[in-house]
Design a binder for these strands. Structure first.
Lengths: 226, 226
DNA sequence: TCAAATTCGTATCAATCGATATACCTTGGG
DNA sequence: CCCAAGGTATATCGATTGATACGAATTTGA
């Protein structure tokens, strides 16, 4: 086969090893570049250079710039699921329909905590968050997949947990708004992290520092419905 | 004079009237374009077309694309001041050093409310918010002016009011973090407004709708220190 | 009204970017 | 060892972009 990009999303099926590794390097470089500079701001040469491959490799593996962009979106969806589906599933299992509001509050803390750790605590997620938020703003080619697979479900889940925390049967408009604002604050803190760290005089957001963020968010959740 | 861009930031001094109007049209189009698509994403032809001028007009009035970008940053600073300096001054006048925490809380509500109205309630501010937040992320040529004149003072003020609300003499790290998260949630709601409105089934963010946002933020402030 | 300053429009250049034609090297099954 | 499939590298094309040379049109003050 001449062009892996024409087949399924997964790495080359039969598979020489080397190709998958190259593919991964390109994807990694593209995530950073697109996240930092946006679709138009990132150039294919920049990405190829950062991945230490030559220009045609991008076409070879992803069919072109837009294909690479969409592959990045899929990768973000995949990584989001890898990190969040566990916590989410555990929460839903531990929260039967008739559960207590206090249990819902604890579940909300767990989910939001996991999300905050992902978005605020890891340096790599900076690019993903910027990528997703940018796509929510510009509504580019990857909008629908990111909205349907990441943003929408994320807000829905948090809105649902908030509403359960408040003792409601189903999310009210206020609960959904509260969920949007909560998710927004975490997302943005992820994006503007360099500036936020500079403002707080923090060298990084690891360890104890990240705990401060989590403590504040937990306090916000504790005060829900007060 | 051949090139107004070479002189002071303000509209042509001696001044033919028509030039100022053209200059304003270009600036308006550029704010929208840069806010929506970023520095590289927006093209000079696009901006010229939207402003119904020809291409060389951009060089004539702003010296080039980057000059126009910086002029946009200055314009944002200027508009931010026009809308916020009033409320901010009123708050500081009404809040002497020995004031009660409850007064500080009311002041915080007024300032954040004014900010929320500006960022969430007006459609034009969508571009400004996107512009500022993008610059905080990418740290482009307009970073320092926006950080020094808008972002930094804004967070500082809110942190200060939060700390006063909590009865502290000076902002602690927790207060500054809380301020960052509060400002982040408002900013992002401004950026992703189209998506947020779609999620909430709102046709727009005007009137009663905007009141809902304000009510939630007020409730968050009420719960501060609880 | 006239001349100077200002503003606007046409045409075009040079650089950059995404894409690709084409040939060469590498890998692995037989 | 061979050869087909997989992977890499060089060189270049066409389109777009920011910039600008140059002159025409308009506005202002005397």
């Amino acid at each position: 086969m001449l062009n892996p990009a024409a087949m399924s999303d997964e790495p080359t099926a039969g598979g020489y090893r080397k190709g998958d590794e190259t593919r991964r390097r390109i994807l990694e470089a593209a995530l950073t570049a697109f996240g930092t500079h946006g679709f138009k701001g990132a150039t294919t040469r920049q990405i190829a250079d950062a991945a230490t491959v030559n220009l045609p490799a991008l076409k070879y593996y992803f069919g072109g710039k837009e294909g690479l962009y969409l592959a990045c979106a899929d990768e973000i969806v995949s990584r989001y699921r890898d990190r969040m589906l566990g916590p989410i599933g555990a929460v839903q299992d531990a929260l039967p329909p008739g559960a207590d509001p206090s249990e819902a509050r604890a579940a909300l803390k767990r989910v939001v905590g996991a999300l905050a750790e992902l978005l605020v605590g890891t340096r790599e997620a900076e690019a993903w968050t910027a990528f997703v938020l940018r796509e929510m703003t510009e509504q580019g080619p990857a909008f629908s997949v990111l909205y349907d697979q990441v943003w929408g479900p994320g807000v829905d889940l948090i809105a649902h947990l908030i509403s359960r925390t408040l003792g409601e049967a189903a999310p009210t408009e206020a609960a959904r708004l509260e969920a949007l604002l909560l998710l927004s604050s975490i997302s943005t803190f992820g994006i503007v992290r360099p500036v936020a760290l500079r403002y707080l005089d923090w060298p990084d957001a690891a360890g104890q520092r990240y705990d401060s963020v989590r403590r504040i968010i937990d306090a916000q959740i504790d005060r829900l419905g007060a």
